[in-house]
Simulated scan of single mutants.
Amino acid sequence: MPRKKLPVGQIGTIRYEEVGYRRWRALAYVRTFADKRIRVTGTGRTKSDAEATLKANANDRVFENAGAIIDGNTTLQELLELTVKAMRAGTIGNKKLRIQSVNTYGRQLSLFEGARGERAIGNLRLCECDKSIIANWLVKLSERTPANAKLAKILLSRAYDLTVVHGVNVWPINPTHGVKLRANDSEESEPVALSLAEIQQIWENVQSWQTPYKQTDLVGIVGALIATGFRPSEVLALQWSDFQLDAKPKAKATLSGAIVRQDGKLVRQGYTKTNSGFRTVTLPDWFRDMLIERLVNADNVLVFPNSRGGFLDIVNVRRQFREARGEVFSHVKFKSFRSSVATAIENVDGVEEAARQLGHASPAITGRYYVKRAADAGDHTAVLEMFAPAQSSQ
């Protein structure tokens, strides 16, 4: 009768040998996740010590996965780097992510290295990095930066999926399952809706900042954000061929791409975030006039190139806007113009038209994240009528 196979990870019968004065060796077999039966040993001053060493050695060896790129000795950092590569290639998850999203997750890798002051759990081997370590690390991270903790949790979850694909059962279940993170206050904050007076003041501040020595056309970029409701990365990708400045009765612009960072380089992605994002918007006359002024001296296919004729980096442009906007508007970000456009259109033409302008497939997205609304308190005038002033007898 053939010998019954050991279950994966289980240690067989342990034998003990006395190998010297107060020195014992424990010997046994264990089956690895590569489906190999290997012998492991451990030594110690007593049988118990030798057995404990044997079990620790067996735990290390059981995750060896012959021929695979991941095993128990792979560090968490190596696993996460492989995960980002798989996300970029679209070989993990339900759908291939946009390069912007993959880059966002890739930026979280430095957290696990300890580059931003966190504990460097990325240096731990997978056989050492259990759920309690990961859960504690995520919770501590969320206390300092909830947004990064949320992204790190998703990345770890995708890393777990990758271990399953490669047959490495280092975590019995997803180590992020059930981990409660601190809520990100900014996620619950209301969208900023700038008033006409505020926009006019920001205009003045930006125009004062702009000098002939400043290469970035910040006035034009802010104008494009206000005139279209496009995202900043979309505005920086605008080409002169995207505009129909002589269209009647109004000039138009067609959104067709965005500037993204890919493999460390800025590139123009020739498609929009969603299918509904590919759209043509009608431009206000003041912005058409602004573009016509710039077109006279244009020597680049891009409307807003950098000083060398290439793509502007949104990080640098945001920094310049922070310098220009004025201290009183420290709460205003580039995305504030998008929500201001949405709110202004919704107030006049309704949320459906605001959704069309912003390129949302559903008005619900526009209403939830981009339109600032006052809560409806209901009609209580029947009660409030009792407070009417008494009629004068005269």
Rank of each mutant, 00 (worst) to 15 (best):
Gln10Asn: 11
Thr13Ile: 12
Gly20Val: 08
Gly20Ala: 11
Tyr21Met: 08
Tyr21Cys: 02
Arg25Trp: 09
Ala26Met: 07
Thr32Ile: 07
Lys36Pro: 03
Lys36His: 03
Lys36Leu: 05
Gly44Asn: 07
Lys47Ser: 10
Ala50Tyr: 08
Glu64Thr: 08
Glu64Ser: 01
Asn65Glu: 06
Ala68Arg: 05
Ile70Gly: 08
Asp71Val: 11
Thr75Phe: 09
Gln77Cys: 04
Leu79Asp: 09
Leu82Ala: 08
Val84Ile: 14
Lys85Trp: 06
Gly93Ala: 11
Asn94Trp: 06
Gln100Ile: 10
Ser101Ile: 11
Glu118Arg: 11
Ala120Ser: 14
Asn123Pro: 01
Arg125Tyr: 05
Leu126Cys: 06
Cys127Arg: 06
Cys129Ser: 10
Lys140Tyr: 02
Pro146Glu: 02
Ala147Val: 01
Lys150Val: 09
Asp161Glu: 15
Val165Ala: 15
Val168Ile: 14
Pro172Thr: 15
Lys180Phe: 01
Arg182Pro: 03
Ala183Asp: 10
Ile199Tyr: 00
Gln200Tyr: 03
Trp209Met: 00
Thr211Val: 11
Thr216Ser: 07
Thr228Phe: 05
Glu234Cys: 07
Ala237Glu: 09
Ala237Val: 07
Asp242Lys: 07
Ala251Leu: 08
Gly257Ile: 02
Gly264Ala: 11
Lys265Met: 13
Leu266Asp: 04
Gln269Met: 12
Tyr271Ala: 06
Lys273Gln: 12
Thr274Asn: 13
Gly277His: 09
Glu293Met: 11
Val303Arg: 05
Pro305Gln: 05
Ser307Asp: 13
Arg308Phe: 01
Arg308Ile: 02
Arg318Trp: 00
Arg319Val: 00
Val328Gln: 03
Ser330Asp: 03
Ser330Val: 00
His331Leu: 02
His331Ile: 01
Lys333Gln: 03
Arg338Cys: 06
Val348Arg: 14
Val348Leu: 08
Gly350His: 07
Glu352Ile: 10
Glu353Pro: 05
Ala355Arg: 08
Leu358Pro: 01
Gly359Ala: 09
Pro363Tyr: 04
Thr366Ile: 06
Thr366Asn: 12
Arg368Trp: 05
Asp376Arg: 10
Asp376His: 11
Gly378Thr: 09
Thr381His: 13
Gln391Glu: 14
Ser393Phe: 05
Gln394Asp: 12
